[in-house]
Nucleic acid binder design. Structure first.
Length: 604
RNA sequence: GCCCCCGUAGCUCAGUGGAUAGAGCGUCGGCCUCCGGAGCCGAAAGCGGCAGUUCGAGUCUGCCCGGGGGUGCCA
């Protein structure tokens, strides 16, 4: 926001150093730790260190020398437009902006840009974010909420940061787990179908866990039990074989039950406000994946050991000339020529590059597949795709319950739908005592926004690679560093604006031509940091950056709200300025919440 | 064996090689004649260990300790 001023200072500094024959190192600008006013600073440690290394600057220790340079520059730099004062402290050169001008510029800019404030210029690159990859024939648990919320948040962030963005989902609709459900359904529940999308989904999940128990070898087993279990196992394998052969009955059963799962997935995505652009089904990339293996063999990347009863492999470390085992050896086809997970991901990547022309590809998948994606990306590189260097595995830690890891097999699962229902129930329970005037008709809708806001924030406010122990009370807390805390700041701002009858369309231009309080300054500072937060979050694919930012902004607003009167202000000009500051804060809170997949309610 | 991730306050987590390492929860203590108390203000409490690089290390490198994940035909 102050590129012009910064550049002017840089030029003066460079000019001065050139005249004094000081070898100036690259200037890096940072904001000054809070000191009641704001500005930017740069240090001269690099320059002093460089000087010491090349024998110049006498024997002065680096910190003192840096301070001396800073002081010299401060004395000679003169007066600059927009800069209020300059100081040299501990080797830093601090430039403080004209407070009033800065405030006016920030607030007017936010109100003028509205929901677009903080949006970056187009980056002319297309990015595809792949997330929400549940297996079908199960229900969706809180672990799926993490990939979905992370993926959606990253999508919104990179889109806002100027990338053309495609949202992709890749459900696992085939595999032994899916077949297990088909087998058990056909054997024990044929013709049954519970009412209700989620009831049906959880019922399928239950069939799966019971079926797995039946198929699991037990410690103590009578010969009859062993025989029965082996019969079941044979039936399951036969079911898989029939699916593979395209048996109409099995395929039909598979399609019908798969649709039940898809109904539930679509319902959950709708609830979370997620809109997928492209669906890739695992069952559909199976055929193309087999075709690409021949190409990789022909290119000498893969080697075919099937004639000796082995699989088709890529010796990645060997191809890269690495001595230590790092990428190891990847298997592309089993010795019976069936494809694997890795093979399908190669086929999928090719399709993303060639059919969708993506420049960047983000995979939101849990960290246990780190090696898998390293292998995928390296093979793509060997294969000759330049996009491989811009493939990114957004590896996230997994979610466990306080009782231990979630297990569909053991039936120890926190389903998204159940957690969401509980969240809403809790909001409704406290709404009457905590909320203001929420109209009866809106109570349910607002409760959903708050409950899901709490859930989303609790998941996104932890860094990608950290594991989460999902504690219901913690995840659905409304106090402190939570989604509702941020939503509440938005609601309070809205409340003031409503009373002030604020109209962003016909604004009297704000002039912050009065002595600003500490709280106003801090609030404005946080507002001004939003565009940088967007850029950083996008560059690092980390919603956490935005989650942290949103909390800090809300915190600054709550403090301001408590300490600084707005509507009660006597002076009309000050009142107008503060109302506009509130409007700007509300806008940025809304923009930040949107990037976190959290609704910004008007009342709560 | 080899590869990857993690270790910061009692607990859960932040922390661009740079100024006095920050929050929330919990604990203790204040604040409702006042724009919405899902709030505000304050207190106590911390970088696993040892070297190294650097003017400067929570941050980079190596080793050690502790935890997790992965490691040729599961996904």
């Amino acid at each position: 926001m102050f590129e012009k001023e910064q550049k002017a200072v840089e030029e003066r500094v460079e000019e001065y150093c050139a005249r004094q024959k000081i070898q100036l190192a690259q200037l890096k600008w940072t904001s000054i730790p809070f000191a009641g006013e704001w500005g930017i600073s740069t240090s001269f440690f690099q320059t002093a260190a460089e000087e010491a290394r090349t024998g110049g600057g006498g024997k002065t220790p680096v910190p003192q020398r840096a301070q001396a340079i800073a002081e010299q520059i401060r004395e000679r730099i003169g007066i600059l437009e927009g800069i209020n004062r300059i100081e040299a402290v501990k080797g830093y050169l601090n430039l403080y902006f004209e407070t009033n001008e800065y405030a006016t510029r920030v607030v007017n800019s936010v109100i003028a840009s509205g929901s677009q404030f903080g949006k970056s210029l187009p980056k002319n690159e297309r990015v595809m974010v792949e997330y929400a990859q549940p297996n079908t024939h199960h229900s969706l648990h809180i672990g799926h909420a993490r990939t979905t919320l992370l993926g959606e948040s990253v999508s919104r962030i990179v889109e806002f940061a100027g990338y053309e963005t495609i949202r992709a989902s890749y459900p696992g609709d085939i595999g032994l787990g899916v077949i297990t459900v088909l087998w058990a359904y056909d054997k024990f529940h044929k013709g049954q179908e519970p009412q209700g999308i989620h009831e049906r989904g959880q019922w399928l999940a239950n069939i799966y866990s019971k079926a797995t128990a039946l198929l699991e070898k037990k410690e103590t087993e009578t010969p009859e039990e062993t025989a029965l279990r082996e019969t079941y196992e044979t039936e399951r394998r036969e079911m898989y074989r029939k699916w593979d052969a395209g048996d109409p009955y099995v395929r039909d059963l598979w399609r019908t039950t798969r649709e039940w799962s898809m109904d539930e997935l679509r319902e959950i995505l709708k609830m979370l406000d997620v809109h997928i652009d492209v669906w890739f089904f695992e069952s559909e990339v199976d055929e193309p994946s087999k075709a690409i293996v021949d190409e990789l063999i022909a290119k000498g990347i893969a080697q075919d050991e099937r004639s000796q009863g082995g699989p088709v492999i890529v010796k990645i470390d060997e191809k890269l000339g690495l001595k230590k085992e790092k990428y190891r050896t990847a298997v592309l086809l089993r010795n019976d020529s069936t494809s694997l997970y890795l093979t399908k991901d190669l086929a999928l990547a090719k399709e993303k590059f060639e059919q969708y022309h993506v420049d960047r590809s983000v995979y939101v998948v849990d960290f246990r597949q780190n090696l898998h994606f390293q292998q995928v990306f390296k093979i793509l590189e060997l294969w000759g795709f330049p996009q491989a260097s811009k493939c990114f595995h957004l590896s996230y830690g997994y979610i466990t319950l306080p009782e231990g890891p979630m297990s569909a097999r053991l039936g120890r699962v926190a389903f998204i739908k159940d957690v969401a229902n509980e969240a809403i129930r809790r909001v409704l329970a406290v709404e009457s005592q905590k909320s203001g005037d929420v109209p009866e008709a809106d109570r349910e809708r607002v409760a959903v926004q708050i409950g899901l806001g709490a859930l989303a924030y609790s998941i996104l406010a932890v860094d990608n690679n950290k594991d989460i122990v999902f504690d219901m009370d913690e995840a659905l807390s409304f106090d402190g560093r939570t989604g509702p805390y941020i939503q509440n700041a938005h609601v309070r701002a809205n409340s003031i604006l409503k009373k002030a009858k604020f109209q962003p369309t016909e604004p009297p231009q704000a002039s912050f031509d009065y002595e600003l309080t500490r709280h106003e300054i801090e609030l404005i500072e946080w507002i001004s940091k939003f565009p940088d937060a967007v850029e950083q979050a996008a560059a690092e694919y980390r919603p956490l950056i935005m989650a942290t930012y949103a909390y800090e902004l809300a915190n600054a607003f709550h403090s301001f709200y408590h300490a600084v009167p707005v509507l009660q202000t006597e002076d009309d000009a000050v009142r107008t300025a503060r109302i506009r500051l509130v409007a700007a804060a509300k806008q940025v809170l809304a923009n930040a919440l949107r990037l976190l997949v959290i609704q910004a309610p008007e009342v709560m």
